[in-house]
């Protein structure tokens, strides 16, 4: 069951969804959102291709494999904990850069919790994609 219409639509929808997911990830610290929700939205961007029946592109960003996301996600999460460990304050102690202002985003705070959230985000994407891939192949069996 392949739908050309959905394939074309996914080309238009996947990037906006992905950017939306990054925005959700970023705003999570102060407003509803965060890595988990962001990850789910980000994964939806990929799943449009799956829904079309043609599968994901062979090249480009949306061809990235689930295991890359899983590895990167867990790795990022662990890395975000190391500064605390190195500073002798215990694994995962939060560290923040001094806040600054950007034109579009307003005041910006960057710190290790955000890095950790990125890890969560990537892991969730990897998880959903791996499930989707497996189920898609299951269907072919």
């Amino acid at each position: 069951m392949k739908s050309h219409l959905l394939l074309v639509a996914s080309r238009f929808l996947s990037w906006p969804f992905f950017i939306l997911s990054i925005w959700i990830l970023y705003r999570g610290h102060n407003l509803p959102g965060g890595g988990f929700i962001g990850g789910l939205v980000g994964a939806s961007g990929f799943l449009f291709y799956d829904l079309s029946g043609y599968g994901r592109p062979k090249q480009g960003f949306f061809s990235l494999k689930p295991f890359s996301f899983l590895t990167a996600g867990l790795g990022t999460a662990v890395l975000s904990g190391l500064p605390g460990l190195l500073a002798g304050k215990g694994f995962m102690t939060a560290f923040w850069l001094p806040g600054f202002k950007l034109p579009l985003l307003g005041s910006v705070h960057l710190g290790t919790p955000l890095v950790f959230d990125i890890g969560v985000y990537l892991t969730v994407i990897g998880f959903i994609l791996l499930l989707a891939d497996t189920l898609a192949e299951e269907e072919k069996l």
């Binding site: 102060n30 959102g33 904990g81 939060a94 919790p113 950790f116 959230d117």
Partner: peptide, 19 residues
């Protein structure tokens, strides 16, 4: 430094659990 307490719990207070 976060206003969304749910997220702060997830990624800071109880980050090890989330890990």
């Amino acid at each position: 430094k976060g206003k969304n307490v749910v997220n702060v719990i997830l990624v800071d207070f109880r980050a090890l659990d989330t890990m």
